[in-house]
Design a protein around this nucleic acid. Sequence first.
DNA 1: GCTTAAGTATACCGGTTAGTGAATTTACAT
DNA 2: ATGTAAATTCACTAACCGGTATACTTAAGC
Lengths: 191, 191
Amino acid sequence: MARSAESTRQRILAAAYVLFRQRGYSRVSMDEIASATTVTKRTLYNHFQSKDQLLAAVLETQNELALAAFKTFGDQLTGSPSAIVDGLFRDLAVWADKPRWAGSGFTRLVIELADLPGHPARAIARRHKAQLETHFGDLLKRAGVRDAHRRAREIWLLSEGAISLMLVHGDRTYAAAAAEAAKRLLRGSSR
Amino acid sequence: MARSAESTRQRILAAAYVLFRQRGYSRVSMDEIASATTVTKRTLYNHFQSKDQLLAAVLETQNELALAAFKTFGDQLTGSPSAIVDGLFRDLAVWADKPRWAGSGFTRLVIELADLPGHPARAIARRHKAQLETHFGDLLKRAGVRDAHRRAREIWLLSEGAISLMLVHGDRTYAAAAAEAAKRLLRGSSR
DNA sequence: GCTTAAGTATACCGGTTAGTGAATTTACAT
DNA sequence: ATGTAAATTCACTAACCGGTATACTTAAGC
């Protein structure tokens, strides 16, 4: 083996994710990714066959990371259903308040590629969102919510809607409105 | 004057909208738009200074059209709050069921340009969504809903979320779930 | 110290893109 | 019929993009 081997691959994946999340897929070039990783374009192509496959690998990696992060986050939330919802949307508001926030990388990329149903990135993003929704449903169930997975889906709808509308309007009070609605939905669903 | 004059401009705007909505902004070329309008690229640039300004003009036009359409749609809905919500989400499901559906053109384009806060398209899209939300609020108010505009915002969040998740999953039952949630939110808000 | 995988440097290819220039042709209004 | 606005034709630029080729250098393991 020579030099760093596997770590180079990780550096590429990390740099590519930052760029893709920030500016989407088409408007990020391979030269740019190479430059951000301080690596030659040739090295990029030694690790990934094409730009599309790089994107797929990036999403796969981020799926694992985000899922792990969400599970840790969920384990911290052990209070009432209302507290869980408040925590979820508070985190959303904080996240959306970052200077150059551009929404969920997954959603953003899927919407950019919405006319390419066969793109590998879409299957990964789909699985990702499904896993998050399911995990959130488990969380609500553990907190004693009736019809937990149905409520989880509804709250997830509110959360995705808030992301969209905050992006369009730049108005992060949508997170608070979504939180209020979510708590209204939970009312009368405590077991 | 010569030939068709203003009508050419309208043809360009219509063709460009179809392409932008279908495939986004970056991946549609000016040559393609010209070809779809059966017009020369030179003519395109006689009517619009740049691709960005063409996009802005397209959104401006579609804003007027969509707003008018939504107002007609709203006038047809004169029943109970539940009936209004059902109508809204039934229309959403039908819309999303179209073969090559790719979400709301406005949302799609804003998300693609999420990292360009100064882009003219964003201001137009923002105004568009705000007008729709306000009009929907008026509709609920007329139907006797308490806190009508707050409820309208919450239901709008559900609707935007449904669009996002239907795009990601290709599963149009999200519209039904959103409708159920919306009706739950309205429960106890009838005046 | 040699081997060998990993990375560098750099030039290149074919294709596409937004946008321009300039001369020409079309069609409508008077 | 004639002026003129509108549209055509088509060649062209300058930049960018994904991806490849070749020859060279580096560093780690044995």
